[in-house]
């Protein structure tokens, strides 16, 4: 996987640009990103990065939601609500859904919200894929250094979205005053996170070029 050594996105004489052929350019962007992602995930280091980052991110997201806390009394206990399916789809606030189970194991208390687990895993996968492409690219022969940090930076809004679910409560705990505008803005954190993660993934993907020979040799 390589990128132009001068750090610019490769654009040959025939390459579409946003101005001359926007639709073609967007298709190309997605295609290149898809190729970059597939290329990264064919490699062991790419897959390891994806799994590690997605796992850590998901756990951090659940902690940010305060669904995963160390407030347990000890012992083991599982409680499931009487109507889990209906409950799972009950929204409490934008992008926060009702918990269907409480699991206590030693010091750990976990509230299981299926929809939010899906959201957290989805965000984690986006961060993980971005980082996987970045890491594989960074370790590539051209050492293009597009920067694994790009993926990590992209993950910040996603992580913040975890706090955003219960933003006003967070403000209460840390002692900041909420305004109507701030509360409203926090409701957009999850879509903002998804958009920024997708944008970063496309940006990262557009800057790499798959080198089949290199990819084959490293595997």
């Amino acid at each position: 996987m390589t990128t132009p050594t001068d750090g610019r996105t490769e654009t040959g004489p025939e390459a579409p640009t946003p101005r001359t052929a926007p639709i073609t350019w967007i298709r190309s962007l997605f295609a290149r990103t898809g190729v970059a992602v597939r290329g990264a995930l064919r490699r062991r280091d790419g897959r390891a990065t994806l799994l590690l980052v997605a796992g850590l991110y998901s756990l951090t997201y659940l902690w940010a939601l305060r669904d995963l806390t160390a407030t347990g009394p000890g012992g083991l206990d599982v409680f499931v609500v009487s109507e889990p399916i209906t409950t799972a789809l009950t929204p409490l606030s934008p992008f926060l859904f009702e918990a269907v189970a409480r699991i206590e194991a030693g010091p750990i208390v976990y509230l299981f919200r299926p929809v939010n687990v899906a959201l957290g895993v989805g965000l984690g996968l986006l961060v993980g894929v971005t980082l996987a492409v970045s890491v594989v690219s960074w370790r590539g022969p051209d050492a293009c250094r597009i920067g694994a940090g790009a993926g990590a930076t992209a993950g910040v809004p996603g992580l913040l979205s975890g706090f955003a679910c219960c933003g006003p409560q967070l403000l209460v705990v840390i002692g900041l005053q909420a305004s109507a505008g701030l509360v409203a803005a926090m409701q957009w954190m999850v879509p903002l996170a998804v958009a920024s993660l997708l944008g970063t993934l496309l940006w990262v993907g557009s800057r790499v070029r798959l080198d089949p020979d290199y990819s084959r040799h490293r595997n």
């Binding site: 305060r66 806390t69 407030t71 347990g72 009394p73 409680f79 499931v80 609500v81 009487s82 409950t87 009702e98 918990a99 269907v100 189970a101 409480r102 208390v109 509230l111 299981f112 219960c166 409560q169 209460v172 705990v173 002692g175």
Partner: peptide, 22 residues
Amino acid sequence: TDAARNYNRDPYGSYEPPVSGH
């Protein structure tokens, strides 16, 4: 209560010493 809540945790702080949060 038929609600899955963590009753060990007060989301707003604590009235127990040291009194904290909100």
